[in-house]
């Protein structure tokens, strides 16, 4: 699998995959993607912060129809995919979920993975996604 990220600024590292957020030095609020000022206290002392790579499904749905452009469908065309918000404790992150609908429920444990994606230029890339993990794994 290629390891060109769809958007480099979203990642603190690719191997192992970790997401890059930010943390307010004044009030501790964590944001994703990384922000340049704090949405809670408006402070501008904001530091880089690596997000946890495990969390639980906060909510989810299945994208059943092909979105309008600028969505880029994969080779072979659009296929329905799952999307959700993952609760990482300090922040919720929206991401595609690499799972069948039957595997998904609110509270299900998931971990960060890289998923093949179509780059904005059409070239192969990877994006952030979450996949189910067995309890205790």
């Amino acid at each position: 699998m290629t390891t060109t990220p769809l958007e480099p600024a979203l990642f603190a590292s690719l191997d192992p995959p970790r997401l890059a957020g930010s943390r307010c030095a004044d009030c501790g609020t964590v944001t994703f993607p990384a922000a340049t000022s704090c949405p809670r206290c408006t402070g501008q002392q904001v530091l880089a912060h690596v997000l946890p790579d495990r969390g639980t499904v906060w909510s989810w749905t299945v994208q059943r129809f092909c979105p309008k452009p600028p969505y880029l469908p994969p080779d072979g065309g659009f296929r329905p995919f799952a999307v959700g918000y993952v609760d990482l404790g300090e922040v919720l992150v929206e991401a595609r979920l690499v799972a069948e609908p039957e595997q998904l429920s609110i509270g299900a444990p998931v971990r960060l993975v890289l998923e093949p994606a179509v780059g904005v230029d059409g070239a192969p890339a990877v994006g952030h996604a979450f996949a189910p993990v067995a309890e205790g794994a």
Partner: peptide
């Protein structure tokens, strides 16, 4: 970012 729309979110 463009990634947000291109990835279907």
């Amino acid at each position: 970012g463009e990634w947000y729309a291109s990835s279907g979110l």
